[in-house]
């Protein structure tokens, strides 16, 4: 009785969630016809930062390590697109692929060292590498433009309107999310969960823990690079601050707000964070104060984030350790 009751609840819950996703995609598709240019810009930002945050959560949620240097890969992606388009006039689509590849390559080198450490050492080593790349970009005037950054990164003519750029970003981000979703549901994704929960036991099963962690790190870095690549032509300029540690904090915040235990949690976090940011800065300059207090309250009173709260309401139980929900 009890079991079937729970099962029924679970099924209806899962179905409701799928229904919600379809509704959200439909809303996202018709959104530009409803809202003005300002909010379409906000929506593009939500999508890009959401992709960045979901890629961060590949390391944080699925591998159990806190990366404080994820902005490095985001920034490398942005600079790859910026430099290729501005200096070599390479088409946007090819530049985006190059952004994923270069960010992935950086993640391969940095990850090679980082995955040897865990916990606080992992957090500080990722932070150190992130700052290392930040200062290289910051100081290398002849190549990256130093602290002036790069200006005049224009999207191709077809995407020059904000609505067109919105649809382009929507398609890319949804495609990237589907790929990451399948990775997280694959045997590889479950191996990552096993490593997160008990690395030693996973090792005893004959799994090369370090190699799995490195592959995961590279995937996360590559998708962060894709997000960064989308940012440059949208903002039409890039600056080294995209790689600074304060930028690395943004996906962390989004993930905390949305909840790291669900795949789309960071995207939900991005919606709340970016929307609040756009809304609050409209009438006050005290945005950091407000978001800081919000984050502190969430950690104190709802560590699972918004998704955690929703899950609790639906399931009326706390046994949500499966981490397989959308």
């Amino acid at each position: 009785m009890q079991w079937s009751h729970n099962m029924r609840f679970f099924q209806s819950y899962a179905m409701k969630k799928q229904l919600w996703i379809i509704v959200v995609i439909i809303i996202a598709a018709i959104l530009p016809t409803i809202i003005g240019a300002f909010w379409i810009n906000v929506a593009v930002e939500i999508l890009i930062m959401g992709l960045f945050a979901v890629s961060f959560n590949m390391i944080f949620g699925y591998m159990g390590q806190l990366s404080f240097g994820h902005a490095a890969f985001y920034g490398v992606g942005a600079y790859t697109v910026g430099l290729l388009m501005a200096k070599l006039s390479i088409p946007f689509s090819l530049s985006l692929i190059a952004a994923m590849l270069s960010a992935g390559a950086f993640a391969l080198i940095i990850g090679y060292f980082c995955i040897r450490l865990t916990g606080i050492y992992f957090a500080i080593l990722t932070l150190s590498f992130g700052q290392l790349i930040y200062y290289i970009v910051f100081e290398w005037y002849s190549f990256t433009g130093g602290d002036n950054g790069l200006q005049g990164i224009a999207a191709p003519h077809l995407l020059s309107s904000v609505t067109a750029y919105y649809y382009f970003t929507l398609v890319i981000v949804i495609a990237a999310l589907i790929v990451m979703w399948y990775i997280s549901r694959s045997p590889f994704g479950y191996t990552m969960r096993a490593i997160r929960d008990n690395a030693n036991r996973t090792r005893f099963l004959g799994i090369n823990v370090k190699r799995y962690m490195l592959i995961n790190f590279v995937i996360a870095g590559a998708f962060a690079g894709l997000a960064g690549g989308l940012w440059g032509p949208f903002n039409q300029s890039i600056s080294p601050d995209l790689l600074n540690w304060t930028e690395s904090g943004i996906p962390v915040f989004m993930t905390v707000i949305g909840g790291s235990a669900s795949f789309l949690g960071p995207m939900v976090g991005s919606i709340i964070y970016t929307f609040l940011n756009a809304f609050v800065t409209g009438f006050t300059q005290y945005w950091p104060l407000i978001i800081g207090i919000v984050i502190m309250l969430i950690i104190l009173f709802s560590p699972g984030g918004i998704q955690g709260l929703i899950d609790k309401w639906y399931k009326h139980s706390d046994s949500s350790d499966e981490n397989i929900e959308l």
Partner: peptide, 27 residues
Amino acid sequence: RIYNRTLSEQLVFTFAMILVIDNLIKI
């Protein structure tokens, strides 16, 4: 209130404190 929390929660919490403190300085 955060002594018994995970490392990441503590880090994010004190990170959020930076935003609040820096903004209060500005105010």
